[in-house]
Design a protein around this nucleic acid. Sequence first.
DNA 1: TTGACATGTTCTATATAAAGAACTACACTT
DNA 2: AAGTGTAGTTCTTTATATAGAACATGTCAA
Lengths: 131, 131
Amino acid sequence: MIGERIKSLREKKGYSITKLADLAGVSKSYLSYIERNVQNNPSLQVLAKIAYHLDTNMEYLLGEELAPKVSVEDVLDEEWHSILRDAVDEGMSSGDFRALKDLVRSHKWKDEGLVPGKKKTSNIIILHIDH
Amino acid sequence: MIGERIKSLREKKGYSITKLADLAGVSKSYLSYIERNVQNNPSLQVLAKIAYHLDTNMEYLLGEELAPKVSVEDVLDEEWHSILRDAVDEGMSSGDFRALKDLVRSHKWKDEGLVPGKKKTSNIIILHIDH
DNA sequence: TTGACATGTTCTATATAAAGAACTACACTT
DNA sequence: AAGTGTAGTTCTTTATATAGAACATGTCAA
């Protein structure tokens, strides 16, 4: 059910109900109701705001209940989303990232056979950056 | 917008507003409002019922407004998304990216005062990468 | 202990989603 | 034309989603 998913993600991020409610701009009482499925018919806008601040999307929150899902978001796991958002916040431009990405590719990152969903730690060693 | 998608699918199926409203169990007045975006914040249950009787799913109806208002897309523009998707396809791990990102930050990227939405090209020069 | 601060809950009030008319306009009949 | 039917819209009301308290409970420091 949707309530459990929200609660689980919220706790995983270390947010209290109050914190998430403030971030998402919904009342904490309502969020409490939703998590316990006391009220299980939120509007799109409410659900979207909650999903955003949990670094996820509505499809995930809805689960299989209502929406068969085949979206690009499925490819980009949640960690990517949150990392990328941080990077943007920190002022990284798309050009910067593209340059780094191309570089990575040129060094045959793919050789290691990364499978979707599998995570690995970095093996980058950068000797110098100048700008 | 969601209204246009519903209307388009409805007409493609040859349904009148009244017909679809009856099938889906919502009032035709409300359906009319939704199609014209007079009211654009329906509940999950209403949207699910409409989607079902249009042989589609909520995802499609939501389209790129998967997260209306404060969506990921507002912060991470389209270019970011496509770049990131490419990177993942190419086998770049989140750990790799995180390392690059931290590096960028340590080099005071932010100093240049990037404002949200503004784009700039890369000024990275990487002398060497080893792995 | 005390009290100040978090946590999540349950009240009650209000805003708004949604229903159920009545209404307009158009197309066919006869 | 006058009637009949069906389309979609705009009224007005009702239901309920959501907000904003007040409330309870726990924790931790002074």
